[in-house]
Design a binder for these strands. Structure first.
Lengths: 237, 237
DNA sequence: CAGTGGTCTAGACCACACG
DNA sequence: GTGTGGTCTAGACCACTGA
């Protein structure tokens, strides 16, 4: 037995995944652990790295499946557009699930980011974006109710606040997106059907209208591999 | 004992960290596990989430320490600048370690990204950026040797390829940065003194000159919390 | 050297999916 | 019910730090 179980495991697992057709199930964790001569904990640790890369997908109760390559959407960040619009440009089917629209009171953080008083009424819109049946992004928008009252929502609202505002002709100007990487918290992990701590690309952004007022504050979480964001940077100050 | 050890643990740990002064050491893992009534494995899992947030720092052989809040550098992505330049703008001290400069043959990936033949000679420059003694970023640049021969490096090269090229007056134009989130691989984790799988913000970018030639291909890895990158997005296509 | 965090094991129980 | 992945435990050994 090697002195570096983890490295050897990664190699063995990579080979196994490689020779397994997309959609097929891998052996169960106890079986695999026995086959590969490691404990289940170590096996799971190695499997997590492959799940992060999007090569496998684990589902409690049913098994671990090999995932086929998916088309990634590559988009520049210079122009703000909804994921729906972006997908349409690429001819990719996406769907929305877990849509939740609530009228709530602004907490500390929300109030600060929207320039509102603590406890001011805001509309909270949350949704999960899926392609190919898999969750790939979790989006949470928060707006002052005077920008978008609950009553202004169309019956068939599919979730994109941006598209709604644009369709209404609101005088929007820019969005400022802060970019970071985080581990999934318990609630986001559940919505995205991934594990707590899994790697996510995270945007936190504010949407401004022409007068400089913040009309929307949003948190976006992306599972790596499905969306490629890029930005073209000018050289020199 | 609660049915949700992990959630309770997070609360208890947060409280412990909160009442411990920055720089102080926490009790050892076996001790803490006993105090909090969980196994060491579970404790470590919870601790990982706090380390990801930059609240604690674990060092093999010496212990786990509470980290004070650090100043984050907030920078827009519209203009390409070196981390050194960025830090100078903010008056923050940074240092470089693990500087490595090598002349190597282009592998498949490098060749594609630099538009070179497989095996063409390239210069590989890697370095770790530190502030406050802590590694915060790992940067790897690769350039064709005809852009930057080893012999052109100044004696006191501190690591920024971009600043070197700009200082020489090279006709650079734009950089295209692809943004993603990844878990640290073993080698990057070692350089950044973090754990394998820890969350990192990752840029992979190509630097173009005025004629559209790729003069540099770079991989950047950032520990979240030390740098804030943002981008201003225009509304409407 | 003793003590720390890093890794791994073997086994247990749970929540969930699916027939 | 049966089998899956998700969580947790108790204990072992290793690699590293620092007195």
């Amino acid at each position: 037995m090697s002195n570096f179980p983890f490295q050897r495991l990664q190699i063995d697992l990579a080979a196994l995944i490689d020779r397994t057709s997309p959609g097929q199930r891998l052996p169960s964790e106890p079986d695999l652990a026995k086959q590969l001569g490691v404990s289940r904990a170590t096996l799971r640790d190695a499997m997590r790295t492959f799940e992060t890369q999007g090569l496998i997908r684990r589902r409690q109760g049913s098994g671990t499946f090999v995932v086929g390559k998916v088309q990634a959407l590559d988009s520049g960040l210079e122009v703000l557009e909804s994921l729906e619009t972006m997908a349409k440009r690429f001819g990719l089917e996406i769907s929305v699930s877990n849509l939740s629209v609530e009228r709530v009171a602004a907490d500390q953080n929300t109030a600060e980011n929207l320039n509102l008083a603590l406890g001011a009424p805001v509309l909270s819109v949350r949704r999960v974006i899926r392609t190919d049946g898999r969750p790939v992004a979790y989006l949470a928008d928060t707006l002052p109710v005077d920008v978008l009252p609950l009553s202004d929502l169309p019956i068939e609202f599919h979730g994109s606040v941006l598209d709604l505002l644009l369709g209404r002709g609101d005088p929007l100007k820019t969005s400022r997106a802060n970019i970071s990487a985080i581990g999934a918290t318990a609630d986001v992990a559940k919505a995205l059907e991934i594990q707590r701590g899994d790697v996510l690309l995270h945007f936190y952004s504010q949407l401004f209208d022409e007068r400089g007022k913040v009309v929307d504050y949003s948190l976006s979480y992306f599972i790596p591999g499905y969306f490629n964001f890029h930005v073209v940077r000018r050289v020199g100050g």
